[in-house]
Computed example of a mutant assay.
Amino acid sequence: MPDHYHSPPLPPRPPAGTLRLPAVRGVELGAPLQWLALGWRDVWRCGFLSVAHGLALALFGGLLLWLAHDRFWLLAGAFSGFLVVAPVLATSLYALSRALERGEPIGASTIALTWTRWQYSRYAVHGGYWSMVRFGLLLSLAGTGWVLTSAALITLLAPQPVQTPMDFVRHVILAPGGHLFELWLTMGALMAAPLFASSVVAMPLLLDRRVDVLQAVLTSWQAVLKNPIPMALWAGLLMGLTLVGMATAMLGLIVIVPWLGHASWHAYRSLVDASNLPERLLPEGA
């Protein structure tokens, strides 16, 4: 593992109100492929602990597909929401990779503590438990905004009402003489780009260090702005592999979800040197 993964002793916690950001590294174009390789290694090392995440989300996605297969906007909203909050849902996968990196034992307790006690901090006002909750809510609001904006665009410009997935295919994707689908895709890309930039390393940083949402989001933007081409490749890989998982009747998500979750941890470790920030550790007796 690269030497920069080993952090020096931590400095004292900064005074309240001080906004301090970690250093962001430049990476090579092929770095996303290395993150995928490291993520795949972690899937094998964690075994069912990792795959269980993908299995749960695949079952949930299959249930949504069954319930809303003939209601396009409900289906679109559900899957848009899933894509937006995926960095939050992968939190325990980051924790597993973090433990592996440190040589710590992993087990079901690692996952349980991630969702119950990992974010505990006696410095509750600075990067406390609610940081990740607030960030998840913000992402959910962003996903809702996209669905509402998309619905307004399609409702105003589609030649016929769109109620089912087949309506969307006929009246938007295959509509003759129009460019509604291209406009819809462009608008989606414009809305997805800032969401990606805000979240690509934010959640692993919130898990790993006692930081607040603003610090995490600003660090994530710095990582993207410093590495625009590698991060564009990373965004394409995340989206492409996720779509492959969905296109296989959700079955591919069983492996792809944990793979991308672990890989996202390694993306964070490669891009961000957070050694100047206090760690988020479990309280004594947890």
Rank of each mutant, 00 (worst) to 15 (best):
Y5L: 14
H6M: 04
L10D: 13
P14V: 09
A16R: 15
T18W: 07
T18M: 14
P32W: 06
A37F: 11
G47I: 01
S50P: 04
V51I: 14
L55G: 06
L59F: 06
F60A: 15
W66D: 14
D70V: 08
L74V: 11
L74S: 10
L75S: 07
A76R: 07
R98S: 14
R98P: 00
L100P: 02
R102S: 12
G103Q: 11
I106F: 05
I111Q: 05
T114P: 01
T116H: 03
W118Y: 13
S121H: 04
V133L: 14
S140C: 12
T144Y: 09
S150N: 09
A151Y: 15
L153W: 12
L156K: 11
Q160R: 15
Q163E: 09
P165S: 13
P176S: 07
P176Y: 07
F181G: 03
F181I: 05
E182R: 09
L183A: 13
A189R: 01
M191Q: 09
A193Q: 05
V200Y: 02
A202F: 02
P204I: 11
R209H: 11
V213L: 06
V213A: 04
Q215F: 03
T219Q: 05
N227I: 05
P230C: 04
A232I: 01
G240L: 07
V244G: 04
M246E: 05
A249W: 14
G252Y: 06
P258L: 12
P258Q: 13
H262F: 15
S264H: 10
W265N: 02
